[in-house]
């Protein structure tokens, strides 16, 4: 109808970008500036606020070679791996057994499952610190009733590790379960009916109907649980304080010891940056691998 060619440009309203400004500013104050301070520390030897010398990458070399840091890194990695191995399948299993329909059953199940998530982290630590004690704690006392078991997390390294792990599972599996439950609820009924008709076992139904449709939420669950567990601090700090010995000294606990306890700002800065980098890279790798495999 019209002879002239319409202009091949995109006209979009770009004014909305101004709305991002407050976020940029607050992130700058809360994250970027402190991070720069840390970078600044990491390349200097700080004797006092007015007395510091530039040392280049020396702290980074020191930190990566420090056997204590290496041991803590291995410990944290092992802890995260165990957390993922237990919490993801367990959370999905809980979600799969939660009711799909029902006016009373569904909200009731949701409240029960979500309960641990509502408790503040340090309170969780306190609860478990007492609960797991062999003398006055119900959990510790009960475990010691089993013949042949001598449980005491303040003395035994393995017991301490198990206590922290079980506590994390208790605290955070509900998050995985809720995410997985939301994913499962979005699957229309006919998929389950078709699986019944096809004679699929409960496992086959889970494997071919539910799991493929949980990919998205599980990606998020794995990322969240990895980051959180890799940076765990409050709970072991409250329960075991990193001990006995160094048995539950995770990276974060070691870091705070170096930074706050010994006031070695330079190594602590280098440590923080490396820590930060490892988490970033791991998350990126997880995310890429998990989303790619879905195609």
């Amino acid at each position: 109808m019209s002879e002239k060619r319409p202009p091949e440009v995109k006209r979009r309203d770009n004014r909305a970008w101004w709305l991002v400004l407050p976020v940029v500013l607050s992130v700058a104050f809360t994250a970027v500036i402190p991070l720069m301070t840390v970078v600044n520390y990491s390349v200097q030897d700080v004797f006092s606020p007015n007395d510091r010398i530039f040392v280049g990458l020396e702290w980074f070399r020191d930190v990566t070679r420090d056997p204590e840091v290496r041991a803590a890194f291995g410990r944290t990695l092992l802890f995260s791996a165990q957390v993922l191995l237990v919490e993801i399948p367990l959370g999905v299993a809980i979600a799969a057994t939660m009711p799909r329909h029902g006016r009373v059953a569904v909200p009731a199940a949701l409240v029960v499952v979500a309960l641990p998530l509502l408790i503040p982290w340090n309170v969780v630590g306190t609860i478990w610190q007492i609960f797991a004690r062999p003398d006055i704690g119900l959990g510790g006392w009960a475990v010691n009733r089993v013949p042949g078991v001598n449980f005491n997390y303040t003395l035994d390294a393995t017991d301490a590790w198990i206590t922290v792990l079980v506590m994390d599972v208790w605290h955070w599996t509900p998050l995985v379960a809720l995410l997985a439950y939301a994913g499962l609820r979005s699957i229309p009924d006919p998929y389950f009916q078709a699986a019944q008709i096809d004679g699929a076992s409960a496992w086959a139904t889970f494997r071919h109907v539910q799991l493929p449709r949980l990919r998205g939420v599980l990606t998020i669950a794995i990322l969240l649980r990895f980051m959180d567990s890799f940076m765990i601090y409050t709970e072991p700090f409250v329960v075991t304080g990193g001990g006995p010995g160094n048995a539950t000294s995770f990276l974060s606990i070691l870091l705070s010891k170096i930074a706050v306890g010994q006031f070695d700002l330079g190594p602590a800065g280098a440590f923080s940056l490396l820590y930060f980098l490892v988490v970033q890279i791991a998350c990126y790798v997880f995310f890429t691998v998990l989303t790619r495999s879905g195609r």
Partner: peptide, 25 residues
């Protein structure tokens, strides 16, 4: 055998595996 209002498939499987699924079960 039942066919629903919208196509209900095992979406990550090939067509062959979809057809074979009830037999393998």
């Amino acid at each position: 055998a039942q066919v629903f209002q919208f196509p209900v498939l095992y979406e990550e499987m090939s067509v062959y595996d979809n057809l074979a699924f009830p037999l393998r079960n």
